[in-house]
Design a protein around this nucleic acid. Structure first.
Lengths: 203, 203
DNA sequence: TATTAGTTTAACCATTTGGTTAATGCAAAA
DNA sequence: TTTTGCATTAACCAAATGGTTAAACTAATA
């Protein structure tokens, strides 16, 4: 394969990301993707065969990157709270760079829940589950208070991700309340999540 | 207008809700909506003129209901923490009844951010802003600690809404961690959010 | 019973859609 | 230079799409 090929394929993928992220699988138009990539529409089929396969490619990549942010939970060289704080830093930085990523995943899961179930089992580096196991273990060892690991996990994810997901709603609320608010405020965001962690996990 | 008319219009709206919530404005098909409602497709145009107007009707309704959950923030007969706790109870109950509601709003905002900006200014019962004002006032009166009202608001909404938004992701994580988790767990959810509030707002 | 007004239907329309096909272009190898 | 294999293009296709139209239906009124 020549350099031009790599270029065309990548251009298609970048364009597809943009269009699928905005319109979803069913709302996106192949001609739009071709226009965005600056290529002839037939090339989409030449390189990716059909709309669904192109979407799969994009969605699988997004899922993979998303779950990668949770791998730090398995890093046994770090104490528990440090792993969680690393996750907070990492996830918030990741979502700052790709603000639409969470929304995209959530959107498509909402439309095709069964499909998601299949896909997520194909992700090999699936370390997202380990936080619950690690929390359970630490609870048994009395290193942390007896909390509900599932609730903690949900709260942690919620605090990290939802401000990005609901960003336009918050902007309007803030605007209407005549509050000045500089955007982005990652350090404040990270700090507030870490405070929550400290509150829940300190003896 | 006869009863049959009210019936047809309502049937269309219920069907449109289902289809728009799943596929969004651009992914939804008018024939699908008609099939779901059990009517002839031309009736969609007879009653709602075109796809966009039908969508507007559904989306405006959703937005309105969503923001209604925040009206309790303005209830001056209640102390601050009670208002917030009422909001927590209310919002979580609301999202339990309409689990797709947040996702729907977030999805459509993500696709059409400008449109949302216009629409949200038309909502009359717009009391969502008042929590920030109330928090500021209470901070000045030294009734609560000096917190960042915007961060607090974002965290509050995050903790309430995101578990519903990301429900399929959590289900997979929980399943993979071999944890038993009974669904729905509203009381635990509410309690954990209220604990957060108490943590942030107690002197 | 005939008329009227509103509701519903089936057929139709122009455009769009995802995908196919054959010809052409391009670069590398023989 | 010719051949080969891959990449790209423009035209095409059948079906789907949102929307329109006129006829038929229905119930209420005169």
């Amino acid at each position: 394969m020549k350099l031009a090929d790599v270029n065309t394929e990548e251009r298609i993928l970048e364009a597809a990301k943009k269009v699928f992220m905005k319109y979803g699988l069913y709302g996106a138009r192949m001609q739009d993707i071709a226009d965005t990539a600056g290529i002839n529409k037939a090339l989409l089929h030449y390189y990716f065969r059909n709309k669904e396969k192109l979407f799969d490619h994009v969605f699988d990549g997004a899922l993979s990157k998303y779950f990668q942010q949770m791998e730090v939970f398995s890093d046994k060289s770090l104490p528990l709270i440090e792993r969680i704080n690393r996750y907070i830093d990492q996830m918030i930085d990741f979502l700052t760079e790709y603000p639409q990523m969470s929304i995209f995943i959530i959107k498509e899961i909402s439309t095709n829940p069964e499909l998601f179930h299949d896909k997520v089992h194909k992700i090999k580096n699936h370390k997202s589950t380990s936080l619950i196991a690690v929390l359970k273990e630490s609870i048994e060892l009395k290193e942390i208070p007896d909390i509900d690991p599932v609730i903690f996990l949900m709260n942690l994810h919620s605090l990290c991700a939802y401000p990005f997901v609901a960003s336009p709603i918050f902007k309007v609320i803030i605007e209407k309340s005549k509050t000045t608010w500089s955007d982005p405020n990652n350090e404040k965001h990270k700090q507030s999540v870490k405070e929550f962690v400290a509150f829940k996990l300190s003896n």
